[in-house]
Design a binder for these strands. Structure first.
Lengths: 233, 233
DNA sequence: TAGTGGTCTAGACCACTTG
DNA sequence: AAGTGGTCTAGACCACTAA
């Protein structure tokens, strides 16, 4: 056993990752229990627990009480990526952010949203359409519904200068959300705003967010061709 | 102060999320320190630490020693999604998985990969092209390079029955990776295999993985139109 | 029923950062 | 210099589950 005597949970995670990568602990195998690992590395069980727990959360290990800890046989790995305000994303890329409000209406939503959000049949909510630009080039087209039944103060915002994206982040923090990625050929309307050929492949991001189970907003973002979203494993 | 007296780290996380959502702790504000929260909820500082640490990891809080813990002003939220073997993904959707090997060659890679992986100029590696199908309908087109300098045993696999995807998961576990999403119009070749109109918008997923800083494989997956990848916040 | 991980505690020391 | 979070420890009890 090669084992450092002084070790923290982070170093231990790295060591476990290496043992798995080197196949010293091959996929599907049972690894020593927390107590034994703690003994080997001269640290406490809490430290081992944190290291193994985090590796399990990322999908590399599978843990069961009594059965012990196994290297995942067919790992369902988890990848994470950051969602920031679009302005920040553009500015981080070193470009100048600008923003254009295309449309803002207080109207009845499509049936899908009406049912999903359990709105009354005559309830009107806010629909906002806008364009985000980086160095004056179209970056992403935003189409958003805001649940003004739950966030009535959004009706007071005109979204002329600050995007709905930004307003919501600051005024209606959400607790949970769901994002879906897909792709779609650019429609005539998309093409006009994004300044691309009709039919271009666009990356489509649809996001719904809730605050304590109350729906807040649902947004559809069409990114300009060439945009890449990066995630790490 | 409304506070439960018996509480675990998970309940505490939920409580903090609610206080943020309800704007009792608005964006940018300083929240009480760990000791104070522990006192309020009648638990130990360790428990508070775990709750707040995890919320900070997910981007909702910002923590600094001495400065304390703040509700993120412009939260850079983190979303996570699972990456499983394509076979599993198809089977979970209740479809029958099948697989077609299109091409397998031991050749010199493109310059980009040669440099990125620091290969010799005459090094040959493995290139595998294949199609994943769900209930006999094309699901995703896979184009993969495998670093056989580091994983020579891949040369012994013929990938006729088991996909390279699956073989690698079981034989060359990776420790880190990067994924990028983009979209692309279907080429003539893509269209042939995926059975779609040329020019259709395809979701493109490119993934590179490493095992202890050693590049293992780089894959480009083109999903059939209509495919959605879901992530949660 | 016994073994394993999951959580919690009380306390400690340290690292970092702001004033 | 002092206050805060970051980590670690030794120990405890509990929850789950395979045998």
């Amino acid at each position: 056993m090669t084992s450092a005597s002084i070790i923290g949970f982070a170093a231990l995670k790295e060591e476990v990752r290496q043992r798995i990568a080197s196949r010293e602990w091959p996929p599907g195998s049972l690894i020593p229990n927390e107590q034994e690992i703690a003994l080997e590395f001269g640290c406490s069980r809490s430290t081992v627990n944190r290291a193994l727990r985090e590796l399990a959360e990322s999908g590399l290990l599978e843990r069961k009480r009594k059965a012990g800890t196994r290297v995942a046989l067919t790992p369902v790995r988890k990848a994470t990526f950051s969602i920031s305000i679009i302005r920040q994303e553009i500015e981080r890329a070193g470009e100048k952010y600008s923003y254009l409000l295309i449309d803002r209406q207080h109207i009845k939503p499509p049936t899908l949203i009406q049912k999903l959000w359990r709105l009354g049949e005559s309830d009107k909510i806010l629909h906002v359409k806008s364009l985000h630009l980086g160095s004056s080039r179209p970056f992403a087209l935003e189409d958003r519904w805001i649940n003004t039944i739950e966030v009535p103060s959004a009706l007071d915002a005109d979204f002329e200068n600050d995007s709905a994206n930004e307003w919501l982040v600051k005024n209606a923090p959400f607790s949970h959300g769901e994002i879906s990625f897909s792709s779609q050929n650019s429609t005539a309307s998309d093409s006009k705003y994004l300044d691309v050929t009709e039919g271009s492949a666009l990356l489509l991001l649809e996001r719904s967010t809730w605050s304590n189970k109350i729906p807040i907003t649902s947004v559809r973002l069409c990114y300009r061709p060439g945009y890449r979203l990066i995630a790490t494993i």
